[in-house]
Nucleic acid binder design. Structure first.
Lengths: 132, 132
DNA sequence: ATAAACCGTAGAGTATAGTCAACGGTCAAG
DNA sequence: CTTGACCGTTGACTATACTCTACGGTTTAT
Protein backbone atom coordinates (compact mmCIF):
# COMPACT_ATOMS: atom_id res chain seq x y z
CA UNK A 1 0.00 0.00 0.00
CA UNK A 2 1.04 3.63 -0.42
CA UNK A 3 2.14 5.95 2.35
CA UNK A 4 -1.23 7.72 2.47
CA UNK A 5 -2.99 4.49 3.39
CA UNK A 6 -0.35 3.81 6.01
CA UNK A 7 -0.95 7.26 7.40
CA UNK A 8 -4.71 6.80 7.56
CA UNK A 9 -4.47 3.36 9.15
CA UNK A 10 -1.95 4.36 11.80
CA UNK A 11 -2.80 7.97 12.48
CA UNK A 12 0.84 8.89 11.93
CA UNK A 13 1.66 11.70 9.50
CA UNK A 14 3.41 10.90 6.23
CA UNK A 15 6.35 12.93 7.41
CA UNK A 16 6.59 10.90 10.56
CA UNK A 17 6.41 7.63 8.65
CA UNK A 18 9.12 8.82 6.28
CA UNK A 19 11.16 9.84 9.29
CA UNK A 20 10.85 6.34 10.79
CA UNK A 21 11.78 4.92 7.41
CA UNK A 22 14.91 7.03 7.30
CA UNK A 23 15.76 6.03 10.86
CA UNK A 24 15.54 2.38 9.87
CA UNK A 25 12.60 1.55 12.13
CA UNK A 26 10.62 0.29 9.16
CA UNK A 27 11.95 -1.06 5.85
CA UNK A 28 12.19 1.32 2.92
CA UNK A 29 9.15 1.05 0.66
CA UNK A 30 9.68 -0.61 -2.71
CA UNK A 31 9.33 1.30 -5.97
CA UNK A 32 7.80 -1.30 -8.23
CA UNK A 33 5.71 0.85 -10.56
CA UNK A 34 7.44 1.67 -13.82
CA UNK A 35 5.41 4.84 -14.37
CA UNK A 36 5.96 6.62 -11.08
CA UNK A 37 8.26 6.77 -8.09
CA UNK A 38 5.67 5.83 -5.49
CA UNK A 39 6.81 3.47 -2.78
CA UNK A 40 4.88 0.37 -1.81
CA UNK A 41 4.68 -0.76 1.80
CA UNK A 42 3.82 -4.21 3.11
CA UNK A 43 1.42 -5.31 5.83
CA UNK A 44 4.43 -6.15 7.97
CA UNK A 45 5.43 -2.51 7.77
CA UNK A 46 1.95 -1.50 8.83
CA UNK A 47 2.17 -3.83 11.79
CA UNK A 48 5.53 -2.39 12.74
CA UNK A 49 4.08 1.10 12.72
CA UNK A 50 1.27 -0.03 14.99
CA UNK A 51 3.84 -1.54 17.34
CA UNK A 52 5.83 1.68 17.27
CA UNK A 53 2.72 3.58 18.27
CA UNK A 54 2.03 1.22 21.14
CA UNK A 55 5.61 1.37 22.38
CA UNK A 56 5.56 5.16 22.19
CA UNK A 57 2.49 4.96 24.39
CA UNK A 58 4.69 3.14 26.89
CA UNK A 59 7.10 6.04 26.72
CA UNK A 60 9.89 4.20 24.94
CA UNK A 61 12.30 6.26 22.86
CA UNK A 62 12.76 5.45 19.19
CA UNK A 63 16.08 3.79 19.98
CA UNK A 64 14.43 1.56 22.54
CA UNK A 65 11.63 0.79 20.11
CA UNK A 66 14.23 -0.07 17.52
CA UNK A 67 15.62 -2.72 19.89
CA UNK A 68 12.17 -4.25 20.29
CA UNK A 69 11.63 -4.30 16.53
CA UNK A 70 15.01 -6.00 16.16
CA UNK A 71 13.76 -8.79 18.38
CA UNK A 72 10.84 -9.10 16.02
CA UNK A 73 13.09 -9.23 12.97
CA UNK A 74 15.27 -11.91 14.48
CA UNK A 75 12.18 -13.91 15.34
CA UNK A 76 12.97 -13.74 19.01
CA UNK A 77 10.15 -11.52 20.26
CA UNK A 78 9.26 -13.98 23.00
CA UNK A 79 7.61 -12.81 26.19
CA UNK A 80 10.86 -13.44 27.98
CA UNK A 81 12.97 -11.29 25.69
CA UNK A 82 10.42 -8.52 25.40
CA UNK A 83 9.84 -8.44 29.13
CA UNK A 84 13.55 -8.15 29.67
CA UNK A 85 13.76 -5.07 27.45
CA UNK A 86 10.74 -3.59 29.17
CA UNK A 87 12.20 -4.23 32.57
CA UNK A 88 15.31 -2.33 31.56
CA UNK A 89 13.06 0.60 30.75
CA UNK A 90 11.32 0.33 34.09
CA UNK A 91 14.70 0.54 35.79
CA UNK A 92 15.51 3.69 33.82
CA UNK A 93 12.18 5.19 34.83
CA UNK A 94 12.84 4.36 38.47
CA UNK A 95 16.18 6.04 38.20
CA UNK A 96 14.68 9.18 36.75
CA UNK A 97 12.01 9.26 39.45
CA UNK A 98 14.72 9.06 42.09
CA UNK A 99 16.58 11.94 40.47
CA UNK A 100 13.46 14.06 40.37
CA UNK A 101 12.68 13.34 43.98
CA UNK A 102 16.20 14.32 45.00
CA UNK A 103 15.83 17.53 43.01
CA UNK A 104 12.55 18.26 44.73
CA UNK A 105 13.99 17.63 48.18
CA UNK A 106 16.86 19.99 47.45
CA UNK A 107 14.51 22.76 46.41
CA UNK A 108 11.95 22.32 49.17
CA UNK A 109 14.73 22.33 51.76
CA UNK A 110 15.96 25.55 50.19
CA UNK A 111 12.50 27.08 50.35
CA UNK A 112 12.13 26.06 53.99
CA UNK A 113 15.37 27.69 55.08
CA UNK A 114 14.35 30.67 53.07
CA UNK A 115 10.89 31.29 54.45
CA UNK A 116 12.31 31.64 57.95
CA UNK A 117 14.06 34.81 56.81
CA UNK A 118 12.27 38.12 56.64
CA UNK A 119 10.72 38.46 53.20
CA UNK A 120 11.67 42.04 52.58
CA UNK A 121 15.28 41.39 51.69
CA UNK A 122 15.89 41.41 47.99
CA UNK A 123 18.84 39.12 48.53
CA UNK A 124 17.14 35.83 49.13
CA UNK A 125 19.64 33.35 50.64
CA UNK A 126 18.17 30.59 48.50
CA UNK A 127 20.03 32.00 45.54
CA UNK A 128 22.95 33.64 47.31
CA UNK A 129 24.14 31.25 49.96
CA UNK A 130 26.52 28.34 49.41
CA UNK A 131 24.94 25.11 48.43
CA UNK A 132 23.32 23.57 51.48
CA UNK B 1 38.42 40.22 35.11
CA UNK B 2 38.97 38.19 31.95
CA UNK B 3 37.06 35.11 30.99
CA UNK B 4 39.85 32.76 32.05
CA UNK B 5 39.61 34.00 35.62
CA UNK B 6 35.85 33.62 35.51
CA UNK B 7 36.34 30.09 34.31
CA UNK B 8 38.80 29.23 37.08
CA UNK B 9 36.63 30.79 39.78
CA UNK B 10 33.40 29.12 38.69
CA UNK B 11 34.58 25.85 37.24
CA UNK B 12 32.58 26.58 34.08
CA UNK B 13 34.37 26.35 30.74
CA UNK B 14 35.04 29.50 28.73
CA UNK B 15 32.75 28.14 26.04
CA UNK B 16 29.97 27.68 28.53
CA UNK B 17 30.43 31.18 29.90
CA UNK B 18 30.39 32.61 26.38
CA UNK B 19 27.27 30.58 25.73
CA UNK B 20 25.56 32.05 28.79
CA UNK B 21 26.67 35.48 27.63
CA UNK B 22 25.13 34.94 24.22
CA UNK B 23 21.95 33.66 25.84
CA UNK B 24 21.69 36.84 27.88
CA UNK B 25 22.09 35.17 31.26
CA UNK B 26 25.05 37.35 32.05
CA UNK B 27 25.86 40.80 30.62
CA UNK B 28 28.26 41.00 27.72
CA UNK B 29 31.80 41.75 28.86
CA UNK B 30 33.13 45.19 28.11
CA UNK B 31 36.03 45.75 25.74
CA UNK B 32 37.85 48.61 27.39
CA UNK B 33 41.42 47.91 26.38
CA UNK B 34 42.56 49.89 23.37
CA UNK B 35 45.23 47.36 22.41
CA UNK B 36 43.20 44.17 22.32
CA UNK B 37 39.69 42.85 22.03
CA UNK B 38 39.56 41.15 25.40
CA UNK B 39 36.37 41.48 27.36
CA UNK B 40 36.23 42.53 30.96
CA UNK B 41 33.72 41.02 33.36
CA UNK B 42 32.53 42.44 36.68
CA UNK B 43 32.17 40.82 40.07
CA UNK B 44 28.43 40.97 39.60
CA UNK B 45 28.84 38.75 36.57
CA UNK B 46 30.93 36.34 38.61
CA UNK B 47 28.18 36.23 41.22
CA UNK B 48 25.60 35.56 38.57
CA UNK B 49 27.62 32.65 37.27
CA UNK B 50 27.83 31.21 40.77
CA UNK B 51 24.07 31.56 41.09
CA UNK B 52 23.60 29.87 37.74
CA UNK B 53 25.69 26.97 38.97
CA UNK B 54 23.65 26.67 42.13
CA UNK B 55 20.35 26.82 40.26
CA UNK B 56 21.59 24.19 37.82
CA UNK B 57 22.28 22.06 40.85
CA UNK B 58 18.60 22.44 41.69
CA UNK B 59 17.81 21.15 38.24
CA UNK B 60 16.47 24.41 36.83
CA UNK B 61 16.70 24.94 33.08
CA UNK B 62 18.52 27.96 31.73
CA UNK B 63 15.18 29.61 30.97
CA UNK B 64 14.07 29.14 34.54
CA UNK B 65 17.39 30.41 35.79
CA UNK B 66 16.98 33.41 33.56
CA UNK B 67 13.73 34.22 35.36
CA UNK B 68 15.48 34.07 38.71
CA UNK B 69 18.28 36.32 37.47
CA UNK B 70 15.66 38.74 36.21
CA UNK B 71 14.30 39.00 39.75
CA UNK B 72 17.81 39.87 40.80
CA UNK B 73 18.17 42.54 38.13
CA UNK B 74 14.89 44.15 39.08
CA UNK B 75 15.97 44.15 42.71
CA UNK B 76 13.07 41.94 43.65
CA UNK B 77 14.86 38.74 44.60
CA UNK B 78 13.04 38.54 47.91
CA UNK B 79 12.47 35.21 49.60
CA UNK B 80 8.84 35.46 48.66
CA UNK B 81 9.43 35.97 44.97
CA UNK B 82 12.22 33.43 44.73
CA UNK B 83 10.23 30.84 46.67
CA UNK B 84 7.33 31.37 44.32
CA UNK B 85 9.48 30.61 41.28
CA UNK B 86 10.93 27.59 43.02
CA UNK B 87 7.54 26.32 43.95
CA UNK B 88 6.52 26.47 40.32
CA UNK B 89 9.46 24.22 39.56
CA UNK B 90 8.45 21.81 42.29
CA UNK B 91 5.03 21.57 40.71
CA UNK B 92 6.62 20.76 37.35
CA UNK B 93 8.76 18.10 39.00
CA UNK B 94 5.71 16.58 40.65
CA UNK B 95 3.98 16.48 37.31
CA UNK B 96 6.89 14.70 35.69
CA UNK B 97 7.06 12.19 38.51
CA UNK B 98 3.38 11.44 38.02
CA UNK B 99 3.92 10.92 34.30
CA UNK B 100 6.81 8.56 34.92
CA UNK B 101 4.83 6.57 37.45
CA UNK B 102 1.94 6.22 34.99
CA UNK B 103 4.40 5.06 32.36
CA UNK B 104 5.84 2.53 34.74
CA UNK B 105 2.41 1.20 35.69
CA UNK B 106 1.52 0.77 32.04
CA UNK B 107 4.65 -1.22 31.35
CA UNK B 108 4.56 -3.38 34.46
CA UNK B 109 0.91 -4.24 33.78
CA UNK B 110 1.98 -5.23 30.29
CA UNK B 111 4.76 -7.40 31.61
CA UNK B 112 2.40 -9.08 34.06
CA UNK B 113 -0.16 -10.01 31.42
CA UNK B 114 2.73 -11.19 29.31
CA UNK B 115 4.46 -13.49 31.75
CA UNK B 116 1.31 -15.57 32.11
CA UNK B 117 1.73 -16.65 28.51
CA UNK B 118 4.10 -19.41 27.51
CA UNK B 119 7.51 -17.92 26.82
CA UNK B 120 8.28 -19.87 23.68
CA UNK B 121 6.08 -17.84 21.37
CA UNK B 122 8.02 -15.32 19.35
CA UNK B 123 4.91 -13.16 19.14
CA UNK B 124 4.77 -11.66 22.57
CA UNK B 125 1.31 -10.13 23.17
CA UNK B 126 2.94 -7.19 24.93
CA UNK B 127 3.94 -5.82 21.57
CA UNK B 128 1.20 -7.28 19.41
CA UNK B 129 -2.04 -6.86 21.27
CA UNK B 130 -4.18 -3.75 21.34
CA UNK B 131 -3.36 -1.28 24.02
CA UNK B 132 -4.66 -2.62 27.32
C1' DA C 1 62.42 35.78 18.74
C1' DT C 2 59.44 32.39 19.23
C1' DA C 3 56.38 29.27 21.39
C1' DA C 4 52.77 28.62 24.69
C1' DA C 5 48.83 30.34 26.55
C1' DC C 6 45.25 33.30 26.18
C1' DC C 7 41.64 36.15 23.85
C1' DG C 8 37.87 36.95 20.12
C1' DT C 9 34.19 35.43 16.47
C1' DA C 10 31.57 32.44 13.54
C1' DG C 11 29.72 28.38 12.57
C1' DA C 12 29.14 23.31 12.79
C1' DG C 13 27.96 19.24 15.49
C1' DT C 14 25.61 16.35 19.40
C1' DA C 15 20.94 13.92 20.78
C1' DT C 16 15.65 13.58 20.34
C1' DA C 17 11.61 13.47 17.48
C1' DG C 18 9.71 15.17 14.43
C1' DT C 19 7.50 19.33 11.39
C1' DC C 20 7.43 22.31 7.47
C1' DA C 21 8.52 24.30 3.09
C1' DA C 22 10.13 24.08 -1.53
C1' DC C 23 10.18 21.97 -5.77
C1' DG C 24 8.65 18.78 -9.13
C1' DG C 25 6.30 14.67 -11.04
C1' DT C 26 1.73 11.79 -11.23
C1' DC C 27 -3.02 10.46 -10.93
C1' DA C 28 -8.12 10.92 -10.77
C1' DA C 29 -12.28 13.68 -11.41
C1' DG C 30 -15.10 16.98 -13.75
C1' DC D 1 -7.55 19.95 -19.82
C1' DT D 2 -6.89 21.64 -15.72
C1' DT D 3 -7.32 21.39 -10.79
C1' DG D 4 -6.64 19.12 -6.58
C1' DA D 5 -4.87 15.39 -4.21
C1' DC D 6 -1.20 12.52 -3.90
C1' DC D 7 3.74 11.02 -4.30
C1' DG D 8 9.02 11.79 -4.04
C1' DT D 9 13.50 14.20 -2.24
C1' DT D 10 16.31 17.57 0.07
C1' DG D 11 17.15 20.54 3.47
C1' DA D 12 15.99 23.82 7.07
C1' DC D 13 13.86 24.58 11.59
C1' DT D 14 12.12 23.68 16.65
C1' DA D 15 13.99 23.26 21.80
C1' DT D 16 17.96 22.30 25.25
C1' DA D 17 22.65 23.00 26.63
C1' DC D 18 26.44 22.99 25.41
C1' DT D 19 31.13 21.40 22.87
C1' DC D 20 34.42 21.74 19.34
C1' DT D 21 36.82 23.49 15.30
C1' DA D 22 38.79 26.91 12.60
C1' DC D 23 40.88 31.09 12.08
C1' DG D 24 43.31 35.03 13.63
C1' DG D 25 45.14 38.41 16.98
C1' DT D 26 47.68 39.24 21.73
C1' DT D 27 50.32 38.51 25.71
C1' DT D 28 53.68 36.24 28.51
C1' DA D 29 57.58 33.52 29.39
C1' DT D 30 61.95 31.70 28.01
Amino acid sequence: MLIGQLSIKTGLSRDTIRFYEKQGLIPIGIKNNEFNTYKDYSNETLEKLIIIKKMKGFGLTLNEISDVLDLLDSNSASCENVSEKMFEKVKLIDHKIKELRAMKRLITNGIKSCSTQETESSNCPLIFEDIN
